[in-house]
Computed example of a mutant assay.
Amino acid sequence: MWSTDYTAETSLSPADVWAALRALHEGELTYDGADEFVLHGPFAVGTHVSVTPDGQETFESTIIDVVENTTYADETVFGDLTLTFRHTLVPTGTGTSVTHRLEIDGASADEIGPELGPQISGDFAESMQALFDAAARLVDGEAATEPSDA
């Protein structure tokens, strides 16, 4: 297995971050560079999700963990590999700590993970900040979607 974590903190509450994270995964929120999500059922364990990374082909994932204001995870199977993406929210004295974890498991994970993993997780810091910014806009009552540059 290969894995990596990225953790960041925000002054926003877990409920505020959760609202943005859920809206993103339900396809109701977007921002520059964000993956596009289309749910095929409720926001619940077992639901399939079509995921289209910015500028890439769509693939299918399955939600494997949902605990409101605490954790969201989905997994994607590619051949003999399983990629698990997990967001874990932990309240702090001043807001929320959020960890985005990627796990690559399977027969070839030890060979492919060190190359593929950093390619996938290379934008975790920027993505997390964009999620926090979108959550702050929701709290402020603004549109969560960034205006386009068009």
Rank of each mutant, 00 (worst) to 15 (best):
Val17Met: 08
Trp18Met: 09
Trp18Lys: 02
Ala19Lys: 05
Ala20Pro: 04
Ala20Asp: 02
Leu21Ala: 12
Leu21Tyr: 02
Ala23Pro: 05
Ala23Asn: 01
Leu24Cys: 07
Leu24Glu: 04
His25Ala: 03
His25Asn: 14
Glu26Ser: 08
Gly27Glu: 10
Glu28Trp: 05
Glu28Ser: 12
Glu28Asp: 14
Leu29Ala: 07
Leu29Arg: 07
Thr30Lys: 08
Thr30Cys: 10
Thr30Pro: 09
Asp32Phe: 02
Asp32Gly: 09
Asp32Tyr: 09
Gly33Leu: 05
Gly33Asn: 07
Gly33Val: 11
Phe37Tyr: 15
Val38Asp: 00
Leu39His: 03
Phe43Ala: 11
Phe43Val: 11
Phe43Met: 12
Phe43Gly: 07
Ala44Met: 02
Val45Gln: 14
Gly46Ile: 14
Gly46Trp: 14
Thr47Asp: 12
Ser50His: 12
Ser50Tyr: 04
Ser50Phe: 06
Val51Arg: 04
Val51Ile: 15
Asp54Val: 13
Glu57Ala: 15
Thr58Met: 10
Phe59Gly: 08
Ser61Tyr: 01
Ser61Trp: 01
Ser61Phe: 05
Asp65Glu: 15
Asp65Trp: 10
Asp65His: 12
Val66Ile: 15
Val67Thr: 13
Glu68Gln: 12
Asn69Trp: 01
Tyr72Cys: 08
Tyr72Glu: 14
Ala73Cys: 13
Asp74Thr: 14
Asp74Leu: 09
Asp74Met: 12
Asp74Tyr: 09
Val77Phe: 00
Asp80Leu: 15
Leu81Tyr: 06
Leu83Ile: 07
His87Asn: 14
Thr88Pro: 04
Thr88Asn: 08
Val90Leu: 05
Thr92Met: 10
Thr94Pro: 00
Thr96His: 07
Ser97His: 01
Val98Phe: 00
Leu102Pro: 02
Leu102Thr: 06
Leu102Trp: 01
Ile104Ala: 06
Asp105Trp: 03
Gly106Val: 15
Gly106Pro: 00
Ser108Leu: 15
Ser108Gln: 15
Glu111Val: 14
Glu111Pro: 01
Ile112Glu: 11
Ile112Gln: 00
Pro114Arg: 11
Glu115Gln: 13
Gly117Met: 06
Gly117His: 05
Pro118Cys: 10
Ile120Ala: 02
Ser121Asp: 09
Gly122Thr: 01
Asp123Pro: 05
Phe124Ser: 05
Phe124Trp: 03
Ala125Trp: 06
Glu126Asp: 13
Glu126Asn: 12
Ser127Asn: 11
Ser127Gly: 15
Gln129Trp: 10
Phe132Leu: 09
Asp133Met: 08
Ala134Pro: 03
Ala134Arg: 06
Ala134Lys: 00
Val139Lys: 02
Asp140Leu: 02
Asp140Ala: 13
Gly141Leu: 01
Gly141Glu: 03
Ala143Pro: 01
Ala144Ser: 08
Thr145Met: 12
Glu146Gly: 01
Glu146Val: 09
Glu146Phe: 02
Pro147Ile: 08
Ser148Met: 07
